[in-house]
């Protein structure tokens, strides 16, 4: 098996909680990322899904070293980058790029599009063949914009075109890994499809590796090879994308998938919805042990008492749960609540 390009081990990120308007005094911490481990292999797309507040964007920023972590390890291309200084990170950054969610906020409105895309080349003092201007025009063309867009300003572009500019900027230094944080969320459906196609073309052409973060399960399923499902700062399930979608094992992944609207009215009517009670608790008062137990239809005392262990299913498919979902899809939503006791199962066999 090839060496992973990125290895993340037991990553922890806290944010201070302050009280008071001006001289805020720290009254506690919120653990936004809580012991997350995963790896990304060269040329693949790792999808990270979860609802708001699950820590997926914070995780992306930690991996990019835009945020310092409390503990854990980030290894990129065989090098431990967890504690590199800003100066040392410069060598790594050219291989590690990011595409942001909001193409309206992430482009400097005072800069011309060409200069935005050229900036990484200038900073890294790259001298591309044919000159920087030529290289930028090449990039514009590659992402589906026209060379004459070079001298325009971001406000002259639509959301989809701005996202193309952001992608061209991320490509400028020919990085190995691009972290895409909700890259299509702000776009219309038809434009979203164009950007997804573009990302997939570029991956094939340049052998790019993606971490693709989104809350839209259909989008993530479409682009990802492997998948991590996050809930309250932890990865509750991960595995090959098709394995997880075909048979989600963690009750949270299962309810998430069952909640996605089906774009087929007959199937939608036939399906009995699985509706989770309640909402994601605030990270300020997270439940102990299994984070999901207060909303979980299968939870027992043990789920509230002890961290659930990782259970392996298919190779490379694991879920942290005492009572993983036995079969999928369910004939009846109430089945999600009726767990088989693993001890009883052992005794009877």
């Amino acid at each position: 098996m090839t060496e992973p390009l990125l290895v993340v081990e037991d990553l922890v990120k806290d944010f201070p909680v302050r009280r008071g308007a001006v001289f805020g005094r720290q009254v506690g911490t919120v653990r936004a990322v809580d012991g997350v481990s995963f790896d990304v292999r060269p040329g693949e797309t790792l999808g990270i899904v979860g609802e708001s507040g699950c820590g997926k964007s914070t995780l992306a920023r930690c991996v990019m070293r835009l945020l310092d972590v409390e503990s854990g390890r980030i290894e990129f291309a065989g090098r431990d980058i967890t504690h590199l200084s800003r100066r040392e990170m410069r060598d790594v950054r050219s291989d590690l790029m990011m595409v942001f969610q909001d193409p309206y906020e992430s482009l400097n409105p005072h800069m011309r599009v060409g200069d935005i895309i050229a900036e990484p080349l200038e900073i890294y003092k790259r001298r591309p063949e044919g000159g920087i201007r030529h290289r930028v025009k090449e990039l514009l063309d590659r992402v589906g914009l026209r060379p004459e867009h070079y001298d325009r300003f971001p406000h002259e572009f639509s959301g989809g075109q701005r996202q193309r500019i952001g992608i061209a900027r991320a490509l400028a230094l020919e990085p190995k890994l691009i972290v895409c944080d909700e890259p299509v969320t702000a776009l219309d459906v038809s434009v979203q499809a164009q950007i997804l196609n573009l990302l997939s073309d570029l991956q094939g052409e340049f052998g790019l590796t993606y971490i693709f973060i989104a809350h839209d399960l259909d989008v993530v399923r479409h682009v990802s090879d492997r998948l991590c499902v996050m809930y309250l700062g932890q990865i509750s399930e991960r595995g090959r994308c098709e394995d997880v979608y075909r048979h989600p094992r963690h009750p949270y992944s299962a309810s998430l998938m069952a909640a996605v609207p089906i774009a087929d009215p007959k199937l939608a009517r036939a399906r009995k919805p699985i509706v989770l009670e309640g909402e994601i608790p605030s990270p300020l008062d997270r439940p102990g042990a299994c984070r999901f137990h207060p909303r979980c239809p299968r939870a027992t005392e043990i789920c509230a008492a002890e961290d659930p262990p990782a259970r392996q299913f298919e190779p490379d498919h694991e879920a942290h749960c005492y009572f993983p979902v036995e079969r999928w899809p369910l004939d009846d939503p109430s089945e999600l609540a009726s767990r088989t006791d693993p001890d009883a199962a052992v005794q009877s066999s």
Partner: peptide, 23 residues
């Protein structure tokens, strides 16, 4: 047709048949 084709959940292959251009 374009709207339905643009939906990842209805895609049959790796590429989505999107609508060219923008609204």
């Amino acid at each position: 047709w374009g709207l339905l084709d643009s939906m990842p959940s209805r895609a049959t292959s790796g590429r989505l048949r999107s609508i060219p251009g923008t609204p």
